[in-house]
Design a protein around this nucleic acid. Sequence first.
DNA 1: GTCTATATATTGATAGAC
DNA 2: GTCTATCAATATATAGAC
Lengths: 205, 205
Amino acid sequence: MAADTTDNQRPGRRYHHGDLPAALIRTSFELLAEHGLAAFSVAQVARRLDISTAAPYRHFSDRSHLLAAVATTAARELADAIRTAAAGAGADPVDRFAAAAAAYVRFAVSRGAGFNVIYAAGLQELHDQALADAGRQLMDLLIALAEDTGERPKRDRLRLVENLIVLAHGYATLYHDGFFARGRYSLDDIAARASQASRELATPR
Amino acid sequence: MAADTTDNQRPGRRYHHGDLPAALIRTSFELLAEHGLAAFSVAQVARRLDISTAAPYRHFSDRSHLLAAVATTAARELADAIRTAAAGAGADPVDRFAAAAAAYVRFAVSRGAGFNVIYAAGLQELHDQALADAGRQLMDLLIALAEDTGERPKRDRLRLVENLIVLAHGYATLYHDGFFARGRYSLDDIAARASQASRELATPR
DNA sequence: GTCTATATATTGATAGAC
DNA sequence: GTCTATCAATATATAGAC
């Protein structure tokens, strides 16, 4: 893959940052949204910030620890986005549940980070408490939204949460990977589809 | 990432193949199932086959053309698997539709290739006719299965196909990425969940 | 805290011997 | 058709100068 023109390393034009850790996390989101988790590299983050490739390692011991910080931020911001969407969807629990699915799709596509990053395989081994807590709170939020949609056995409630996650993540992933590109769907279209399918699954019958 | 112990390159133990192109495709599926599309490399395929890294390029001009051959095989075999599953599910169109979702999940997880590979962004630019045909036939099969489930406007039928794809691909992807690992779900559990959700969305209400 | 420079690994891909 | 050898990129990560 050719380097972005904005990532060219030009010695002599480097500069210092007031808050490099925050800048690293912010730029990581940009690259995740553009190229996905698989293509994420510390070196590319550094290039885009016009700093040396060594600089990030002063603040994060390795690639995984930077990604863990990104994942923690993502989990918190995603939970906020879902809370805001649910609050704006009114009083009907099914409306709120469906709004959560749309919010997930928009967040995952625009920021490049969803459950794949928050629960990424390599990050669980770090036993990062902040990440574990943020992930847990995100799950608890989704479970609460599912429970509100109707009386169900606990197992069915959990499966409803699972359905929302899979639908929203599936739409976001396939959209990012270009599967829907030839259909000329916009991000709003995709979010609406995930939302509608979640609504149908959540509606008692 | 450390190389697999089975991928160690040991000069002196190399051998020739009767049908290297077929072996390359077969081994590519193995690596896709283990590490996913993002980690796929021609070099690793060669290492596992105990051949030089140059050998594959006698049969496929570059990485993309090898992947296109893999994707074409995947599309055909996936369509076969779905046809077989539908045929074994009986006469009820909803049963057949649900069986297709389960078949997709099993295929995508066990072979490492689903819509993400068949419709991978980089492969569309090759304008490979065999791949395009195989992908089209796969889609036509899913559309036919969706149409059989009930009278619907064309737009709703297409969205039902889309829902199946997203659900099945989402379950397969998140399972492969380890999201369901801590829940101790088996592949059969995951396939059943994708199937059940597809069934609910396909059931007229 | 950031830089330069470096060590090491892996990749995609090619040239030329056999 | 396969091998050896090699090149240019790119990656992670570290040592030591400033």
